[in-house]
Design a protein around this nucleic acid. Structure first.
Lengths: 335, 335
DNA sequence: TTGTAGGCGTTATCAA
DNA sequence: TTGATAACGCCTACAA
């Protein structure tokens, strides 16, 4: 079966292809009866405009690339949902790229982004370096980074929708200090180095201000099992910290299990908070305290920002750095 | 900055655009020194071939659409990883579509798939009806369905990579019967109706063969909270079944919590198995028995199958229905 | 209101 | 081994 084109429709409706093009694009200069005739031809033939050809003609693909790490835990999932929903509203197609250790370096992803001439790019934090961002810059592809804060702000064509994880950690530690607690641990998450870095710097800052030095950054492999094993081992020689901060559910639950199995009580002996919230935190006992972070909205805002950047090429005084707010969810692992 | 094209490179290297095209596409008829000259021009200008134009010229986009539900729990995530990795190997780009209740009907997704002229489609089960599949058929887009078994097999251009959930459930129930257990519940998951249907039909079949009728299909809303509430309520008037089968972690954990809080012991009073495995099943106590399902491989196999279908247009005797195997993971909720 | 023709960036077929 | 040139399918001035 031959792919049917605008010519076929034109012939069928006995008009020129220009007219068909007009009805496809809702031009308002078409007489009603010819519009009808064309529409009938379109329906009859089952014609669908070739987006590739349109892309070529318009130098605009109406598609956006999303780049994220291959490990998409629930935090990313909700951001993705927000991105997709808004993309749908604006009728953007999505090219999806994942980065992982072995198989695909960011470099390849960038290569294919440039080649496919997408209109814009959404980058999840933690998947690229600054120089990689600069490559995208050279090709003048508008992009917004979603997740945590990026160092360089006010680069042309770059937006950022973020949570200020540094402040979050800073405030959390300060509030511990106010309760007289200074023995705090922060558990590393290798999947989110940039978030971790910001959390750590917030913790450091709070300690510094108090004239102390923070030295309980707990680092090990990132799977659930290893963190569970790690803590179990840890308790043979250590006492738990008074407060333990964790980024994701896996580490939080591992900690919870290991701690209670070592004979300690949460929150009596050790309190804990897991920064990123999800449903599993309330499936375990006790329920784990966390933060309410508007993941879905972050995605939605990021995509909307990008679409704005795409229309207002004259990136006027559009605010391209948007901070999202969070709030503490006190549950049973804190008191 | 003007987008640089093959013409610019041609001028820079002082050759015709045809020659440039040849070196881009690794044609072996180019003399070594001119290839070099062209390559230098390419590097100097930072030229990247326009995939859109290539797509137009070749009637081939080298991109594949993936369609899945918006809720991507870990089961889907791993399939997706498999898909992406293999797509990368074959240098395919991925268009990503999600379907959800309100915002995007499958119909719109199909529309955009057809317009974007992707070479093939991967469909996750549970997101489309048979007639929607037929639309894709009309446009002759090769596709493979991944997840559970599709009813109609041997349609041209349609592949299927699946787990036989019906057999899985059938065997599971049979093995219960052998242990003298006939009081079994199956908990519904609204997110995966087709999987559920197959599980249920396997259960039904086993009961029928024994001359019994299965009547403990537990149905309610699909969020964690509601299933937890449901079970808690349930136990005020019911005893737990001897064996409870669940599809996903959420329901399994909800059941576990509600059951033990109602004063029953798992597995003594009620055994349970959660069909889809993931790490959370071993984060709770007791560890939940499950099935080892090769999700990643399913994705990888599905994508590889699709690429094969794309090259061997003469869909010869290529086996387009691939059943994947599973195995039981006995943990602490069964005995 | 409609049609004609040039252009979007490549590939591929012929000649040279 | 290289260079013209006609597709590929659509959009958009410009004409009619």
């Amino acid at each position: 079966m031959k792919r049917i084109t605008i010519y076929d429709v034109a012939k069928e409706a006995d008009v020129s292809l220009a007219t068909v093009s007009r009805v496809i694009n809702d031009s308002n200069v078409v007489r009603e009866d010819t519009r009808l005739r064309v529409q009938q031809a379109i329906d009859k033939l089952g014609y669908k405009p070739n987006a590739i050809a349109q892309g070529l003609a318009l130098s605009k693909t109406t598609t956006i690339s999303i780049v994220m790490g291959e490990k998409l835990f629930s935090y990313n999932e909700k951001i993705l949902n927000g991105l997709m929903d808004v993309a749908k509203i604006y009728n953007y197609n999505i090219m999806f790229h994942t980065t992982s250790k072995g198989i695909s370096k960011m470099q390849d992803v960038i290569e294919s982004i440039i080649k496919s001439r997408v209109d814009g790019v959404i980058l999840f934090n933690d998947n690229f370096s600054e120089e990689e961002m600069e490559v995208l810059q050279e090709y003048q592809i508008p992009m917004v980074v979603v997740g945590s804060r990026i160092p360089k702000t006010d680069i042309a064509n770059v937006g950022n929708v973020y949570i200020d994880f540094e402040s979050l950690a800073y405030e959390l530690v300060k509030s511990c200090f106010e309760k007289g607690i200074t023995d705090i641990s922060l558990v590393e998450d290798k999947l989110n180095l940039s978030m971790m870095e910001q959390l750590k710097s917030g913790v450091d800052k709070a300690y510094e201000e108090k004239g102390l030095k923070f030295d309980k950054y707990i680092s090990y492999n990132d799977s659930y099992k290893s963190s569970y094993v790690y803590f179990t081992e840890y308790y043979k020689t250590h006492q738990p910290s008074k407060v333990v901060i964790t980024l994701r559910d896996s580490q939080a639950i591992a900690f919870l299990n290991a701690t209670s199995e070592a004979g300690y009580d949460v929150p009596k002996d050790a309190q804990m908070v897991c920064v990123l919230n999800n449903k599993y935190l309330t499936m375990v006992r006790p329920h784990i305290s966390s933060y309410n972070i508007p993941e879905y909205d972050m995605g939605a805002v990021a995509m909307r920002l990008l679409t704005k950047m795409l229309v207002e090429e004259n990136n006027s005084k559009l605010d391209k750095n948007i901070e999202m707010s969070y709030s503490f969810l006190a549950r049973s692992t804190t008191k």
